[in-house]
C-alpha cells in the first residue's frame, strides 16, 4: 500500500431524505479528498462545502470514529460499511477508492430502521430487543473479588468474540430479508456462554426472539450476508447457538 499522500476527485450520489417525505439521490462532487482520510472525514469535507454554499449538510451518524461505537451506518456502493470486511465506515480509508470514481451512499435500509434524515436511521428497535432480555441481574452489595467465578477459557473466548458486536445494524442492512438474527445471536451467545448470564438464560432467549419478531425484522434464510458485512467479524456460529438456546428454552418452559 502506498504511503505517499495523494488526493482524489470523486462524485458522490447521496441519499437525501427529510422526515416524512420520500427520499432521492443527489449528486455532489467531492474534490481534493486526501487518500489518508476516512470515509467520514471525506463526508465532513463535502458537508463543509455544502455549508459554505448555504446548503443543508448531509446528516449522518458518527461518534467514536475508531470502530467501537457502532454509530456510523452508511451503505457504500451497496455494501454496509463499504467494501472491506471487518471495517466500519469510520475505519474505511479513501485510498480504497480510485480517482474519478462515483460512490453511491445510502442509509442502512430496512423497514425496522426508519430514516430520520438523509443517512441517519433510527435503530431503536435494536435497543428494544436488548431491553427485552439482553442484560444480567447483579445483586447489590460489595463487589465480588475479581475472577471469583471460574469461566472456562474457551467459553470466555467465544463470549468475548460475541461481545465484539457494536450493534451497528450492518447485518440488518446487508440481509436481503432485513433480519436482525446476527445481532440478536451475538447478544444471546455472549450472555449464554458466561456464568453471570445463567439466571435469565431461558427467558432471555425467548424474550429477545419475541421482541425481534415484534419489531418486524425479516426471517433469516442463511445467505450469510450478515456475517460478510459485520465490521466486528461476528460469525453465524452464534446464530446456530441461539437456535439451540431458543429450542431448549421453548421446550423446557413451564408456563
Amino acid at each position: 500500500m502506498s504511503t505517499t499522500h495523494k488526493s482524489l476527485n470523486l462524485t458522490l450520489k447521496v441519499w437525501r431524505q427529510k422526515p416524512g417525505a420520500p427520499g432521492r439521490f443527489v449528486t455532489y462532487p467531492a474534490r481534493n479528498i486526501s487518500t489518508d482520510m476516512s470515509f467520514l472525514e471525506m463526508m465532513d469535507v463535502v458537508n463543509q462545502d455544502l455549508i459554505k454554499k448555504g446548503d443543508d449538510p448531509i446528516a449522518f451518524d458518527h461518534d467514536c470514529r475508531e470502530g467501537i461505537c457502532g454509530s456510523c451506518s452508511m451503505t457504500i456502493n451497496g455494501n454496509p460499511h463499504g467494501p472491506d470486511r471487518e471495517t466500519a465506515t469510520c475505519q474505511l480509508h479513501m485510498r480504497r477508492f480510485t480517482e474519478g470514481e462515483t460512490i453511491t451512499v445510502e442509509p442502512f435500509r430496512a423497514r425496522s430502521f426508519p430514516v430520520i434524515k438523509d443517512l441517519a436511521v433510527d435503530r431503536a428497535a435494536l435497543d428494544r430487543i436488548m431491553a427485552a432480555g439482553g442484560f444480567v441481574s447483579v445483586s447489590t452489595g460489595n463487589a465480588q473479588d475479581a475472577n471469583n467465578i471460574p469461566v472456562a477459557k474457551e467459553n470466555a473466548d467465544l463470549a468475548f468474540d460475541a461481545a465484539a458486536c457494536i450493534g451497528c445494524g450492518a447485518c440488518v442492512a446487508a440481509c436481503k430479508n432485513a433480519s436482525a438474527m446476527l445481532f440478536v445471536s451475538a447478544k444471546i451467545s455472549q450472555l449464554a456462554l458466561l456464568p453471570q448470564g445463567q439466571v435469565e438464560r431461558e427467558r432471555r432467549a425467548r424474550n429477545m426472539i419475541a421482541q425481534m419478531d415484534k419489531e418486524k425484522f425479516g426471517n433469516c434464510t442463511n445467505t450469510g450476508a450478515c456475517e460478510a458485512a459485520c465490521p466486528k467479524g461476528i460469525t453465524m456460529e452464534n446464530m446456530a447457538r441461539t437456535y439451540r438456546e431458543f429450542l431448549k428454552a421453548e421446550l423446557s418452559k413451564r408456563h
Binding site: G23, T75, N77, G78, N79, P80, P83, D84, R85, T104, E106, R109, A110, R111, S112, F113, A174, K176, N177, A178, S179, K216, F217, G218, N219, T221, T223, G224, A225, A228, A229
Partner: peptide, 22 residues
C-alpha cells in the same frame, strides 16, 4: 412475503465483492 416487506424501501444496490453472497 414477510421478508420482502421487512426490507423496506430497498430497490437499489445489493452487497457485492468481499461482502457478496452466493
Amino acid at each position: 412475503l414477510e421478508n420482502r416487506a421487512a426490507r423496506g424501501e430497498r430497490a437499489f444496490l445489493t452487497t457485492s465483492g468481499a461482502k457478496g453472497v452466493s
